[in-house]
């Protein structure tokens, strides 16, 4: 059970109020009309799936209904930090 700090509400709440929405920091193609099939495939389907630190998007679905980002270890499940959309993570994987 995660106990998640929502950066918008400024409170810790239980996992059931939140939904994980996949990889964070996905950049939409700047020029979608001229994307190749390969570029579309990469944008739509290819995902980082690290065993270790992962930056992911969450939504406080039954709370403030706002999105935010989280850095979490996918093995220990430890939440390293939460930060608002548009901000950069401070905890990043080595290499």
């Amino acid at each position: 059970m995660f106990y998640i700090y929502c950066p918008h509400c400024g409170e810790h709440r239980e996992e059931e109020e939140f939904h994980a929405k996949g990889q964070a920091h996905l950049a939409r193609p700047l020029d979608p009309d001229n994307c190749t099939d390969h570029e579309w495939g990469e944008y739509l389907y290819m995902r980082k799936n690290p065993r270790g630190l992962h930056h992911e998007l969450w939504i406080h679905a039954t709370g403030c209904r706002k999105f935010f980002n989280m850095t979490r270890d996918t093995v220990s499940y430890e939440i390293k930090e939460v930060y608002k959309v548009g901000e950069r993570p401070t905890v990043v994987a080595a290499s």
């Binding site: 939904h19 994980a20 799936n49 065993r51 992962h54 992911e56 979490r72 996918t74 093995v75 220990s76 499940y77």
Partner: peptide
Amino acid sequence: IDGYNGYG
């Protein structure tokens, strides 16, 4: 499944 990624 659980909604988040995990290897644990």
